[in-house]
């Protein structure tokens, strides 16, 4: 379907080569252990690949002198690391209590309706959108905050959803 999904089948290309490798090496002096670089390293993987595959976990394990199982334990703890390929736009709608009372569930429905996503976490057929509910984004005064990839859109209402989606190329 999407390029990201096909990554499953093609041979794994390492992330930590060239500039990325230098970037990672530059982090090592900042911490007393290599293990401490696991979160930053996983972020680099996700920035490059959009998600953290099992093969990527093994690579991170190798560059940080850990085991793949250890890395997997860490990856699965933190919800921001995508363990599956996601759409071009990952739309994360906060639905925790403060946003919930301000109509966050309607915002979720509006995104579902206007993107053609059939269910939460299921990427739309065109591969463009994946919508998930997230727990508190820490912007409760700007209900409902919606995180679209790296950007937080504040004060989203159901009515604003079509315009927001139209702004996504």
């Amino acid at each position: 379907m999407t390029a990201a999904i096909h990554e499953h089948e093609t041979p794994y290309q390492p992330v930590f080569v060239g500039d990325r490798r230098k970037e990672l090496d530059a982090l090592f002096p900042l911490y007393p252990t290599k293990m401490a670089c696991i979160l930053p390293a996983l972020w680099m993987v996700q920035e490059d690949r959009g998600w953290v595959s099992d093969a990527a976990m093994a690579e991170v394990a190798q560059v940080l002198e850990l085991t793949a199982a250890y890395v997997k334990g860490v990856v699965t703890f933190y919800t921001m690391y995508n363990q599956h390929p996601v759409g071009k736009y990952l739309i994360q709608v906060c639905t925790t209590t403060p946003c919930n009372i301000c109509g966050a569930e309607d915002v979720v429905s509006a995104f579902m309706e206007h993107t053609g996503c059939t269910d939460l976490g299921i990427t739309s057929a065109d591969g463009r959108f994946t919508i998930i509910e997230v727990e508190c984004l820490g912007a409760c005064g700007f209900a409902t905050p919606v995180m679209i990839n790296e950007d937080v859109v504040e004060s989203v209402t159901a009515a604003r959803v079509p315009a927001i989606l139209a702004g996504l190329k």
């Binding site: 099992d54 085991t67 997997k72 334990g73 699965t76």
Partner: peptide, 21 residues
């Protein structure tokens, strides 16, 4: 030989390992 881990968290947590190891 860290072959086992705790995967996921909360009540979804299970003892896990890396596929193939």
């Amino acid at each position: 030989d860290t072959v086992l881990n705790v995967s996921a968290r909360g009540d979804r947590a299970v003892i896990g390992k890396y596929e193939g190891k």
